[in-house]
Design a protein around this nucleic acid. Structure first.
Lengths: 172, 172
DNA sequence: GACAGATAGTTATCAAACATAACAAAACTG
DNA sequence: CAGTTTTGTTATGTTTGATAACTATCTGTC
């Protein structure tokens, strides 16, 4: 089923452009692949870097049992107490339906509290609980090592410069 | 169910640290949220940028119906004809079981061809088909605009410097 | 050359992330 | 007030990504 026979391998025909791999040694497994143009593509490296950073984040704050999105929410609620779901979700680029689920877990863990928003009976104002604040601070101090690690790897590149470039790319 | 009542909102108790948002105006919806420390976190901006870049990629190459991973595979097979699945998957950081699925689609579309690898009856050597090459080239030319767009947004930051930093971060 | 262990590809399966549609309640608007 | 919008929510679907397990084959060693 995975092996569709409809498409006959048209390769190996000698006489075509060399690029299409005519007669070529079987490529020993130890050979490193040529990244080719991929090595010049911003998106590729951005993705690989992001995955690596998230992985490092996860192991760094493993004891807090917080995923990046969750940590971001706590951080945001700390700096912006009393906001409603829609606002927080919007800044983080999280769809409302998905935010509900994440928030439910944070509330379930007692990290976030809701209050009826004054003047609007639809929405609730979100607050970091004391437990949430404690965990946030503990996590933040864990993350110092994480950020330091990243900064080290920047080579000559200035951290602020990088972030500003990333912001510029992101706000497309 | 989402509203667990087990955790009483302990907020609003006056007398606690001001940070925990005591009596505060309802925060009009038009107010921008304060990103706070998030604004200094590399991972956050990396992620936002990566998502934006992938979105731009998708709309740019929409006519090719290629996702970033698929494009990468075509590119890699073009530069490294005759490689086996494991090798290609490994470079891209794709787990073998998942690679099988992606590859099946590419083969189904006639973009990639397999041949029995000489000397190893287990693996097959992968090649870009002519159709694959055509699509790859068309997509590549589409992507020039994409990359140009990104480069513009870099501000003063040198593209090569950025990529080298990203590589350094990724190879953790 | 037989056997233990590694490797290649695959299947099945699962969980997490992300997206859409639809809805009720409340709020806003002309 | 009627119509539209906003907020939170449920249900649901799609896409990624990860694990386990299996077959076939290859490799190294005794």
């Amino acid at each position: 089923m995975a092996m569709t026979s409809e498409t006959r391998p048209r390769v190996r025909r000698l006489g075509t452009k060399p690029r299409v791999a005519a007669a070529r040694p079987p490529a020993r497994p130890s050979d490193r692949l040529d990244l080719a143009d991929l090595d010049d593509m911003l998106g590729y490296h951005l993705r690989r870097a992001q995955v690596a950073v998230f992985a490092d984040f996860m192991t760094t704050v493993a004891s807090s049992k917080l995923k990046p999105a969750e940590f971001s929410i706590l951080l945001l609620l700390h700096a912006n107490p009393g906001r409603k779901q829609s606002d927080v979700a919007a800044v983080l680029g999280i769809k409302r339906p998905n935010f509900v689920v994440i928030l439910a877990r944070l509330i379930g863990r007692g990290l976030v509290a809701q209050q009826q928003a004054e003047g609007d009976r639809r929405s609730s104002a979100l607050y970091l609980s004391e437990r949430g604040l404690t965990l946030l601070n503990r996590t933040r101090s864990l993350l110092e090592a994480h950020e330091a690690r990243l900064t080290e790897r920047l080579g000559g590149l200035d951290r602020a410069t990088l972030i500003s470039a990333l912001k510029s790319i992101a706000k497309a």
